[in-house]
Computed example of a mutant assay.
Amino acid sequence: MSSNEERRDAARRKLEERLERERHIARQRRITIISVCSVAVLAAVAVGGYFYYRHWDDKRNTDCTYTKAANDWDKTLKSIEEQVKAAPADQKAEGEKYLAFMREGGKNMRTSPMPQSRTRNTGTVDWTLKTNLGEIPITLDRSSAACNVNALISLTENKYYDGTDCHRLAESAKLHVLQCGDPTRTGAGAPGWTSPDENPTDLKPGEINPQMLQLGMTPPVIYPRGTVAIANRNDEQSGVTNTGSAQFFIVTKDSELQPTLSVVGKVDEAGMKIVDKVVAGGIDPGPVGTPTSGFPKTPLKIESASISS
């Protein structure tokens, strides 16, 4: 082969090598670009998925504010003792009876851990009260009062209600309720914390008193028979709110009440037949009651409470 042909072959090989290197570099560049783009897309999808999940999770959950509220029973007793000492002579006997009642109740005081603050706000939960008269099935509705339903679940899981008596039966012109959930049977017991108000918004209005409206008070609403709601010590005029916790009541007949009592669920008809037996037994005024509000003569003891989804 002549030197010219050798030079041409050498030049051709160098050109081919250079072109191959350039093609290789171009392929690597494309691979790098595709990889970077893929990572960017995956990152965008991950970030988007995270925020979508957070949005979805936030919509189905609620953050609740529970407040510590220690029940100083000794302080309560001391206050009652002072009132009895200062009472007129004709009232001392009744005062001493009430003081003895409170002292006895204090022996059964119990507490329960504060519920977790975050809870589901949709769906229902089956709550069963096993009583001395039979089982009372209740359907709890998270969408109605998520924080208070969560509180009942927590109290049930910590056996707060086990071995407690329903302590109040009220039967008057507009109020028909059976109240439970206080181990002391005094109406003053509490688990050591309070739950937030979740006022009902879908109840029918009750009878409006013009004088009530003039005083700026909220008109009552009708709580239907079978409703389960949380008792509280709220005082609208004094601005006292968020005082509910463990005590609940079952509406035995449509009742007019202030719309400040969180509705947590409903008793089914089988359970209401048991409640009706208690109502039919009548009221024992006891040491602190009246003919229209006192202990049920037919005792209803919650032997145990249980939750199932």
Rank of each mutant, 00 (worst) to 15 (best):
M1G: 15
S79C: 00
D57Q: 13
T65Q: 14
L15C: 03
E171H: 09
H24G: 01
T290R: 11
A10E: 15
M272L: 08
R27W: 11
T186A: 06
R21L: 03
A188I: 00
F101V: 01
I307D: 14
T252F: 06
E20T: 05
R13Y: 12
M272D: 06
W193K: 01
G282Q: 04
T184S: 09
K85L: 15
T76M: 09
V263M: 12
S262F: 10
C147H: 09
E198S: 03
M102C: 03
P224W: 12
T65E: 08
I34F: 10
D276T: 01
P205H: 06
G244T: 00
E236Y: 14
C64H: 10
I307P: 15
W193C: 01
L129W: 09
R8W: 15
A89M: 14
R29A: 13
N108C: 00
I283E: 10
A305P: 06
D74R: 11
R103N: 15
T201A: 11
L15M: 07
R21P: 00
M114Y: 08
L42P: 07
K107R: 14
P115W: 06
K301Q: 07
A151E: 07
G216P: 14
T241M: 13
T156Y: 12
V251M: 13
I33H: 03
E17C: 01
N199G: 00
T111F: 07
V41S: 04
R185D: 15
A190Y: 04
A246K: 02
N132F: 03
T128E: 15
S245A: 08
V45P: 05
N199M: 11
N108A: 09
K297N: 13
I136S: 11
Y98R: 14
Y66R: 03
N158M: 04
G226H: 11
Q211G: 00
R225F: 07
D57R: 07
R23E: 15
K253A: 06
M272W: 07
G239C: 13
A26G: 02
E135H: 07
Q83W: 09
A146W: 13
Q83K: 14
E207C: 00
A69P: 00
I274S: 02
H167M: 05
